[in-house]
Amino acid sequence: MSILAVQGLTKKYESFTLDDVSFSLQPGRIMGLIGKNGAGKTTTLKSILNLVRADRGRVEMFGRDFYQNEQWCKQKIGVVLGGIDFYSHKRLSSITEVTRRFYPAWDGKAYQKYLTMFELVPSKKVRELSSGMKVKYMLALALSHNAKLLILDEPTSGLDPVSRDDLLVLFRQLVQDGERSILYSTHITSDLEKCADDITYIKDGKLMKSADKMTFIESFQHLKESGETRPLSLEEIMIRTERRNYDV
């Protein structure tokens, strides 16, 4: 059974349409959602989470319709929105004290473990954390209520290479027991070379391809230029697919 199955997700705006996006994510896997800025990655994630009202489409999480079972599904997921600060003047301990009340499955011991593991100080305020530490704090909250699906929107954007690598190693460790999955949007394709199992590529609101990484890369090899023998990287695939000629 898929942890997440998205079917025909469509959202129309005046100048942009997310058009009939479908993909699914299996347990124990990391899926990278790629596309250039404005391609529809965040709209896809927000539509999945009902933050944005989809015009059409179905989202199934853990075998249940998400829109019909929103509260139940949200008990089992953790969401990290990179670059958005919540309660920047509040201490982590205050945010945790509020958040834990919403999750019957909250595990205080696990939370303490993750705080120690991520070197988070509960008395610190959100604004005192680096971008990487903010992501880790949100992950600590998600993992403490035993989230089985982590939905991360550009969690590594703006991080230095060391912090990025640190998070990517952590993501791999999180899925290794085969129980959790991660859906992770980014435009930093080199990150996905390191940690993703599956790739879903959205271009101008349309799904280009969703497949495991090897199949995905192989299906774009027609973009190779003459003389090239090695397989194209994700970055080359994206650049060559998106490349435009300006008539100036």
Binding site: L49, N50, L51, E70, Q71, W72, K74, Q75, V79, L81, I84, D85, F86, Y87, S88, H89, K90, T99, F102, Y103
Partner: peptide
Amino acid sequence: EINDIYYTSLLPVKK
């Protein structure tokens, strides 16, 4: 300013 509605909407509650 503190993105309160955003955070709340990610909690297991209805809109």
